[in-house]
Design a protein around this nucleic acid. Structure first.
Lengths: 225, 225
DNA sequence: GTCTATAAAGTGATAGAC
DNA sequence: GTCTATCACTTTATAGAC
């Protein structure tokens, strides 16, 4: 009679989810230190001591939040990443063909750009950047969750498209491609001022996308035989 | 007999400077919230209440720190920016010549790359990124201090080198160039894992610089008449 | 300008009843 | 699982003597 499927309707799991949701928003908005467990409990409509019961301590809650973030991002990038893997698997001389590889690469970067310009990212982006500079245990959750897979695909596609390029060079190139997209999130205010924009809406995202595609075409022109 | 030069040798200015120096390091290392005025006072060898006396409150100290950061960065980028302005001033048909413009652009980006890979940036980079996403009054200090000038120069050089490109397109291109450099700071941990590096030393900075120069050459190949 | 001392308001964590 | 109550500690800010 017992089911192996997790039961999300029990009272405990409900509070767990409520706390997790509130914590993700709160940590994202204000950063680790500014978040108080008191305010969090109120916002989640839950007793404060239940946070300790479910997540141990504040640090445990923090880690659980990163699992949630990684899951969310992974889900959004998954279609593009799966397509890229499929294209790379169609291996052999020439693989799936240049045009195909390039289209897949664009789809991959487009997915990340959409994520980075999405207002939803306003919050957790800061948490991720913090982990990038002072990695804690939480960084592994992110890297294993989506980052490593994404960067690896970028590098492998770049290697195939450019030809006659070493693998480390391709990886470095992948980093610079990543940076071109990241810029619109991590240097957001600077970009807005330079462009005299007030926000990055759909139209402007399209302009950025066009610029990125042009850049990719220039950067990935084959260099060797 | 009175001099107009600020007197840095009075007792008050000495404590002011000591606090400011300690605060810059502390905010940079730990972020605004983690820094306590108690610890700061001890580290600066100053009585805690003097911080309130000189800077009003914690927020006032924070702003003063941004002025210090902007001044430091401006000083490091200044040679490259001055050279770029000189090159752009030698205007007219063809200006100073393509090769000259390109060299100046590389010098500009090299300066930023050195700054971004310098361990000294470990600290204040995070502060700047935070301001980029939730700009406070402190962001204006940064943008007016160096960021606007730097981005503007990048855009104007890109416009001249590419030819037949609209000004907004050139500015967007400048953002993607910026991103390629920023990546090695803001996505530091991810880059390190992908490249299987433990740090970004001088040799690796040189490899990045080579990659960036290659990218710039490809991106800024003239497209029109 | 500099100091001591302390006020006033948090903080995370936990014991123990239900 | 959930609650109340409280502990032990830290924070910023300031009053007032020198």
């Amino acid at each position: 009679m017992k089911t192996l499927v997790l039961d999300h309707s029990t009272r405990g799991n409900l509070t767990r989810d409520a706390v997790l949701q509130a914590a993700t928003a709160a940590f994202a908005a204000d950063g680790y230190d500014k978040v108080t467990l008191r305010a969090l409990a109120i916002q989640a409509g839950v007793n404060q001591s239940l946070i300790g019961y479910h997540f141990g301590n504040k640090q445990g809650l923090y880690q659980a939040v990163f699992v949630a973030i990684a899951t969310h991002i992974r889900a959004r990038l998954d279609p593009g990443m799966a397509a890229a893997e499929a294209a790379l698997d169609r291996t052999g001389p020439g693989g799936a063909g240049r045009d195909d590889d390039f289209a897949v690469l664009c789809r991959l970067t487009d997915g990340l750009l959409d994520l980075m310009t999405d207002p939803v990212a306003d919050g957790w982006a800061q948490l991720i950047i913090r982990e990038q500079q002072r990695p804690s245990d939480a960084f592994g959750i992110l890297y294993n969750g989506f980052m490593g897979r994404f960067l690896g695909l970028l590098a492998r596609l770049a290697e195939r498209l450019r030809g006659s390029i070493t693998e480390p060079e391709a990886r470095l190139l992948a980093c610079t491609i990543l940076g071109q997209i990241l810029a619109f999130r991590v240097a957001r205010a600077g970009v807005l001022r330079l462009m005299a924009w007030s926000e990055i809406d759909k139209t402007r995202t399209a302009a950025i996308r066009a610029c990125l595609h042009r850049n990719l075409r220039a950067l990935l022109a084959p260099t060797g035989p």
